[in-house]
Design a protein around this nucleic acid. Sequence first.
DNA 1: ACCGCGGCTTTCATGAGGCGGAAGGGCCGC
DNA 2: GCGGCCCTTCCGCCTCATGAAAGCCGCGGT
Lengths: 283, 283
Amino acid sequence: MTVLADRSAESHRLTSAQRVLSILGVFDAENLALSLSEISRRSGLTLSTTHRLLNELRCWGALIRHSDGKYSIGLRILELGTLAPQGGRLREIALPYLHDLQHALRANIHLGVPDGHDVIYVESLRARDTVPVPSRQGGRWPLHATGSGLVLLAYAPQEFQEELLASELRSYTAKTLTDPDELRRFLAEVRRSGVAVVESQLTYGVMAVAVPIRGPRDKVVAAVGVTVPSGSASPHALIPAMTTTARSISRALGAPSAGAPAPRPHWRVHEATRPLTPPGARR
Amino acid sequence: MTVLADRSAESHRLTSAQRVLSILGVFDAENLALSLSEISRRSGLTLSTTHRLLNELRCWGALIRHSDGKYSIGLRILELGTLAPQGGRLREIALPYLHDLQHALRANIHLGVPDGHDVIYVESLRARDTVPVPSRQGGRWPLHATGSGLVLLAYAPQEFQEELLASELRSYTAKTLTDPDELRRFLAEVRRSGVAVVESQLTYGVMAVAVPIRGPRDKVVAAVGVTVPSGSASPHALIPAMTTTARSISRALGAPSAGAPAPRPHWRVHEATRPLTPPGARR
DNA sequence: ACCGCGGCTTTCATGAGGCGGAAGGGCCGC
DNA sequence: GCGGCCCTTCCGCCTCATGAAAGCCGCGGT
């Protein structure tokens, strides 16, 4: 009864699709394997509902069950994820160049693409002997908090930038850029120079440098980021190799400004996750 | 009316979770972007149901919508997929070694892990100048049809092998191994020699060589596969580098036989996707 | 211009099936 | 032995997902 009051009170109404998704959503980098009751608690679903859905997800291959009874994300999801157009294809094309870059710079390399207000690392190559930055393939960070993110933001549509600048910008270190005006100036400078350089923006003692990658219509579709321990290198030592890499990848993607071979119109992502009303809706 | 008869006739009853999953399931490597009505047709769901679910999935980030109205898998799924224990972690550890191997052999390199009756390529490095094999990261093939798959099968539990051998084994070329007895002999040979060598098994004119990778309790958890054009190299030229690579990765994963550093008990996948009744069930 | 068609969006009444409470069972550690 | 925790199963109520239908848009043919 009290429980029932609780539930209905806070508009805890979910559609059944949302229930399924909320189960998937409880997994993150810190929670790779969770038990039934942990999932139930974290998702806010009752035990029996969670139990039933977990079984359905497991049968489909979205989840697996370990010998200790805990659940994890299954390979079926990994398989699906590689079908994301910005993921699979872009990553596949870029990977050889990124490796060359890593070989040349001996630094952590990321390939980031925008998703909502965040940047997702579609690829992350860690140098064995450098700072352990918290960047994994599949990692998600706010656009304003990373070098790659700031590059992507700099080339995003004006209105999107303003929308993001108006939202709450989380601070990770004392040096994280969160002031809208400061950010606007920074982004303008990125557009002017074509490169973003930040220091201890997300993690203390880490310098990040990032440059844009362009696709078919010269639209910026991704960013290459490099992180090194602060003071271990000058940005100027990194930038030439990075712009070269970015240009190679851009050309391979068909960017005219990089010497595109053929203009083949392909997938282009437009609408992000936000609005419930789809683009074709009445105005 | 005829339509209604159709639907109810073939026990087309799905749970709502299954409906969500059946939508995700319509995407594959040949169908990266689909329109509402295509998804509706391929999933067997009515248009309005599909429409509603697509919106929910899009809001959550599981799908994105392109400017032409078509839907694709979203980065949120890619993000989730990297949380698969066999995927993210294994891949991250193995990648540097795989790259060294590619550098040495100049061939296509795969890292495969088992999922049900299939092998999933957790990583796939294509050599720029060699045969275009149909292997992408996230690709799924029957265990009996690829070099890596046969290695994984060879070290799988006896009962699992028999279950798989009893199922229908699809043939891809005239040389695909599909005869149970022939396969049994082949698998025994793989266990004896520790390497699988096949020719035109999945694709004509391609030779595949694969070796096992072992994890914590010396259990075979993955396989490294190499594909080269038939006749371009002798297996003996490839095998030493491959076993070296596999050993390095195995050691990094904590395999005792490869000189394990520490026995840290971690995730181990036990139950695959098949049975609806979970492992703890009554017997 | 007209019409038809295919694809997309929205609405709504209906009843199937998802839901959560509760009970039962197993496995700890105290 | 007992209490706590976790997992599993069952079942009746009632919500909410469902599919039909209608409306809209844009396209192409005649």
